[in-house]
Design a protein around this nucleic acid. Structure first.
Length: 428
RNA sequence: UCCCCGGUAGCUCAACAGGUAGAGCAUCCGGCUGUUAACCGGAGGGUUGCAGGUUCGAGUCCUGCCCGGGGAGCCA
């Protein structure tokens, strides 16, 4: 048994392969089957005389997505998609498939999402999800190589980190708890124990958003580092994004080709990324006629405009404190400004990173809880971190699906996750 | 929650000004010795999202509801 991704190692040899019938073509007394096995797709050729009668007959009758076993000889041939094909000797039907719903012609998005469990057998979806896997691996390798320790945060949490309107409420025995919207607060505790840490996992937002950038369940990698200040963490994020881009270009070229992704914009991504302050961003927007005022957060159009000004990810820092969460540390000279950063992906993809330096002064943080109207009791443990050796620390979160959507240049984040969860869509 | 757009064959769509439902793909049958979403010929396949209404007549017009898409706000 061999895997299709290794087919070039078997030129001229007889091999055995299991896979699903991806497509079928024929001409007179010759039959072509495209077979996929999860690692790739290969063309098998059936010629009368070179294959037994039963196998030839089966190659004619076998339906899309039937599972088959194929014996044959690997041959290099430019006429075959991928450059290699298998001259079939014997074909066996292992498991039939009847009326496979996803056909070769186009389908609407509703139908495809309703059949997501089958849809991701298709070439493009397959390519996107393989890129996703590589993005995740790149994030983890990058952080592991820099001495960050994976310390996972809980998913069931007693309270929110940012507000209470966007949380999913869950019955937890006889009380209410919430699905995590960020592992960050727990990360801060872990950073005091392990120095540099990250958590990686799903996060949940009950926002009633219906846009190409939103899912109710999405994945984030969130590094948090002791002794790092705002600009240290910005440098870290910059290095990490660059590392991800380079990794995808190195290991997932084939998938980018399947997606017909123009890789020039990705090849162009080098350090340093452009850096502007929130104030500068506001000025650029106002010059262009946007009606945004100082103190307001950017909307989708504003983000798209700003990120299109540059051909690299855009770093925006020093947001107004009132746009950001209670735990953001503030600029000493101007407490209206938070030590925060967002990074917008180029080509109009919007925010992929959000982070900043955390408030490490107990009194300031207590004051902030009151300002934001947050209950103290469930956050008592969080305040402890400022009582027992408070420390300078910073971190950020990188959204996996938005990053994948940008790298793949797909329109909507729903294709960047195996089973997207959206408002009004929870099946399959 | 709000604003637009849509729902017709298994799928993607068409049906002009209201006149009685049509094509490609998929399926089945037949043809073709190198196909590349192959192609060619034939066949079967419909309660036009649901409920009312207007009309001699409704896929088409009106009202309500359901479902989906795009966007806004909110956010990564």
């Amino acid at each position: 048994m061999i895997w299709i991704e290794n087919i070039n190692e078997y030129e001229g040899k007889e091999i055995l392969l299991k896979g699903w019938v991806y497509n079928k073509r024929s001409s007179g007394k010759i039959r072509f089957l495209l077979i996929r096995d999860g690692t790739g797709i290969i063309q098998a050729v059936f010629e009368i005389g070179k294959v037994d009668e039963n196998s030839f007959e089966l190659a004619d009758k076998v339906t899309q997505e039937s599972l088959v076993e194929l014996k044959g000889v690997v041959r290099k041939d430019n006429r075959a998609p991928g450059g290699f094909e298998i001259v079939a000797k014997e074909l066996k039907l292992l498991s039939p498939s009847e009326n496979y719903p996803i056909t070769k012609k186009e389908h609407g998005i509703d139908f495809l999402l309703q059949h997501r469990h089958l849809w991701f057998r298709s070439r493009k979806q397959f390519a996107i999800l393989r890129i996703r896997a590589e993005v995740i691996k790149a994030c983890r390798d990058f952080l592991d190589n820099r001495g960050f320790i994976l310390v996972d945060a809980p998913i069931l949490t007693p309270t929110s980190c940012e507000g209470t309107t966007t949380l999913f409420e869950v019955n937890y025995f006889d009380r209410k708890v919430y699905l995590s919207q960020s592992g960050q607060l727990y990360n801060e505790a872990a950073a005091a124990a392990f120095g540099r840490v990250y958590c990686f996992g799903p996060t949940f937002r009950a926002e009633k958003s219906k846009t190409r950038r939103h899912l109710t369940e999405f994945w984030m990698v969130e590094p948090e580092a002791s002794f790092m200040e705002l600009f240290d963490i910005i440098n870290l994020a910059e290095d990490m994004i660059l590392y991800i881009v380079e990794r995808i270009l190195e290991k997932r070229r084939k998938e980018l080709e399947i997606l017909e992704r123009d890789i020039n914009p990705l090849l162009n991504i080098k350090k340093p990324f452009p850096r502007i302050t929130y104030d500068e961003a506001i000025k650029k927007l106002q010059e262009k006629g946007f009606k945004i005022k100082w103190g307001e957060d950017f909307g989708g159009d504003e983000e798209t405009f700003l990120s299109n000004l540059f051909d690299k990810p855009l770093i925006i820092y020093y947001y107004p404190a009132k746009c950001k969460a209670f735990y953001m540390k503030r600029l000493k000279e101007n407490p209206e400004i938070s030590l925060s950063v967002d990074i917008l992906a180029p080509e109009g993809y919007g925010e992929i990173v959000g982070g900043g330096q955390r408030e490490d002064d107990l009194k300031e943080l207590e004051k902030r809880l009151k300002e934001y109207n947050l209950p103290r009791e469930p956050l008592e443990w969080y305040l402890d971190l400022r009582k027992y050796g408070s420390f300078v620390h910073s971190g950020f979160g990188l959204g996996i699906e938005r990053t994948v959507a940008w790298l793949c240049k797909i329109k909507h984040v729903r294709e960047a996750i195996p089973f997207p969860r959206m408002i009004d869509r929870i099946y399959p």
